[in-house]
């Protein structure tokens, strides 16, 4: 325990990386999910099958496998590019690899959240906007997107808390977030119990904060609904 104490700030500091990686990845996933959902609502004949296949595939693959695929895939692509264009191979950023891998994968979950949200909205609201003479683009940006986002908030907040936990997998390809740092400390102090206990506490604090935030969010939502 004594050997671990000096490393406490180092491990806890990893939370910043955990949260940053989760935020960027989450933004990716939301963008993909929203775009795919809006594409489906245009009624384009290819949209339905493509999005459904995308959801089915990425819902079934382990996150870890996706991370490896992206990581090794990029590595090979970069090597080939380096050979043919004659530059020295640059290492792949684990941050980028995780963002891409988990972003694309969680995009599939967010498609489900958004399309459920879209379905829950009274279609009369869109018709009213069209009837007002708004252009289709304006109906999308000023009516559809805000309404869908609002209806998707509970699902998305849930997705984000899952994202925070999944980000621990990024440690496997070297992203220095909480898990990775705990592992490094465990290796050098020979006190794995203490090092991982710190990591556990870090995530429990996050979970507690998320639970409080969610409760407050729900309460404020209920009060606006009732108003």
């Amino acid at each position: 325990m004594h050997a671990t104490l000096p490393f406490l700030p180092y491990i806890v500091g990893g939370l910043a990386v955990t949260i940053l990686a989760s935020l960027v990845t989450f933004a990716c996933a939301v963008a993909i999910g929203l775009a795919a959902t809006l594409w489906m609502t245009t009624g384009h004949p290819a949209a339905g099958p493509i999005v459904r296949a995308y959801v089915a595939i990425f819902r079934s693959l382990p996150e870890l496998l996706c991370i490896f695929l992206v990581y090794y895939g990029c590595e090979i692509a970069l090597q080939k590019a380096a050979v043919s264009f004659g530059f020295r191979p640059i290492p792949i950023s684990p941050f980028l690899a995780v963002t891409v891998a988990i972003g694309v994968q969680f995009g599939a979950y967010s498609v489900q959240i958004f399309s459920d949200a879209h379905r829950s909205i009274n279609p009369g609201l869109f018709e009213a906007a069209h009837a007002l003479g708004l252009s289709p683009r304006k109906v999308t940006t000023r009516v559809a997107i805000p309404l869908i986002l609002q209806a998707a908030i509970p699902g998305l907040s849930n997705l984000f808390s899952v994202m925070l936990k999944v980000s621990a997998l990024a440690s496997v390809i070297g992203l220095e977030e909480v898990t990775r740092r705990a592992k490094i400390v465990a290796g050098s102090t020979r006190e794995p119990f203490a090092a991982y206990a710190v990591a556990v506490v870090c995530f429990l604090v996050i979970a507690a904060a998320a639970a409080l935030l969610q409760a407050r969010l729900e309460r404020s939502f209920r009060s606006t609904r009732e108003a």
Partner: peptide, 23 residues
């Protein structure tokens, strides 16, 4: 329920695999 839903599975696994044998 709160604790085990809050801990990432990987950390739980590390904790049990590397940490527990210390006890």
């Amino acid at each position: 329920i709160f604790v085990f839903r809050g801990i990432p599975l990987l950390i739980l696994l590390y904790f049990l695999y590397y940490g527990a044998p210390q006890i």
